[in-house]
């Protein structure tokens, strides 16, 4: 066994625990040496701790600096603060990396999609600055800063350079929001000067949406402010097969949390019915972040093979396998002799 990594496991709620157990089964079978430390997060924490994100969980993530997270539910409207957004804020996980890549076995109308979205994760209208400024007017401040914009752009260019990507576009609405989106775009252009080997450009967000559904193959990497990023990353997930296959990484300078971006599907909780692929692919991203490329590639190859055979796949991709049966099939495939 190689270097031992200590990783915080956040199973979340609803179907989260059964998904995370399936994912742990696969990751542990890949040959990587991980000590998992389980911590609570999400709606189930409310009765026990009075918060969606207990301090104990925060302290554990601060110690380990890496976590794998299952789905959680954010209450709509008034009430408790989102555990997801709180995690991003507390640990300053400013880069939300959301790859959207076609999985060969999933039939889609396109031949090629391989986009990496870099969503700024801490600013914009997610700064939690909202007021009822009169009894008939609500206001939310959209906060865009030069350091925050420069940082996400630089992160994206560095990632692109390290991973052989060729082209980055900044997505914005600077024709209308000239101060906020204008600042974001200016910072992107400033950073782009440092990376002359990578083609850069910009595109207005509404046009980007249209172009994505008409011809997604034209895009390589996108850098987006928080709100556009939230929306377009799900659009991209839809292009490649839905949220069931959409991984995500929230990365800061000192910590990274890998998570599925789908909800916790409480109506399926305990039925072992849902597809764990999104958390599993997030786990593969985590392994690569931990420099465990061999284990990551082993899982990825086995997962694609199981999907391709379609014998042990979950209901959403036309099968009848339970969550853990799908995971076990991936484990068996990894252990099968070539």
């Amino acid at each position: 066994m190689g270097t031992q990594h200590v990783v915080t496991m956040l199973p979340g709620e609803g179907t989260g625990p059964e998904i995370c157990e399936a994912v742990r089964l696969v990751i542990d079978a890949s040959g990587v040496n991980i000590k998992w430390e389980y911590e609570d997060i999400g709606l189930d924490c409310l009765d026990k701790y009075g918060t969606l994100l207990p301090d104990k969980t925060i302290q554990n993530i601060a110690k380990n600096k890496v976590a794998l997270k299952g789905p959680t539910t954010t209450p709509i409207g008034t009430g408790h603060k989102s555990a997801n957004v709180t995690l991003r804020k507390v640990f300053d996980l400013y880069a939300n990396v959301r790859p959207a890549k076609l999985i060969p076995v999933l039939k889609r109308p396109w031949d090629k999609i391989d986009i990496i979205n870099f969503r700024e994760n801490t600013e914009d209208s997610y700064a939690a600055i909202e007021h009822m400024v009169s009894d008939e007017v609500a206001q939310c401040l959209k906060v865009i800063t030069w350091p925050g914009s420069y940082r996400i752009a630089d992160f994206a260019f560095k990632w692109a350079k390290a991973n052989g990507r060729k082209k980055i576009f900044c997505v914005h609405k600077a024709n209308i929001m000239k101060m906020t989106d204008g600042l974001f775009l200016d910072a992107f252009r400033e950073v782009a000067k440092k990376y002359p080997d990578i083609e850069s450009g910009d595109i207005i967000v509404d046009n980007c949406c249209m172009q994505l559904v008409r011809n997604p193959a034209q895009f390589d990497c996108l850098v987006l402010p928080n709100l556009y990023g939230d929306i377009l990353t799900d659009l991209c997930a839809g292009l490649v097969g839905g949220l069931g296959f959409a991984p995500g990484a929230n990365v800061g300078d000192g910590c990274a949390i890998f998570e599925a971006v789908h909800g916790s599907a409480p109506k399926y909780a305990g039925m072992k019915k849902v597809n764990p692929s999104a958390v599993l692919i997030s786990g593969i991203m985590m392994l690569r972040w931990l420099k465990e490329e061999a284990a990551a590639a082993r899982i990825e190859k086995a997962m694609f093979a199981v999907l391709d055979e379609r014998k042990h796949v979950t209901y959403d991709v036309g099968g009848t396998a339970k969550t853990d049966e799908y995971a076990q099939a991936i484990v068996d495939k990894m252990h099968a002799k070539a």
Binding site: K89, D92, A127
Partner: peptide, 24 residues
């Protein structure tokens, strides 16, 4: 007190937290 929407006082503040010169 918050900075870019993140509470910076009282309580835990990540040493990596980016802060700008504008505090709520």
């Amino acid at each position: 007190i918050s900075n870019r929407g993140t509470k910076v006082w009282p309580g835990f503040v990540s040493p990596d937290l980016l802060q700008v010169n504008w505090y709520r």
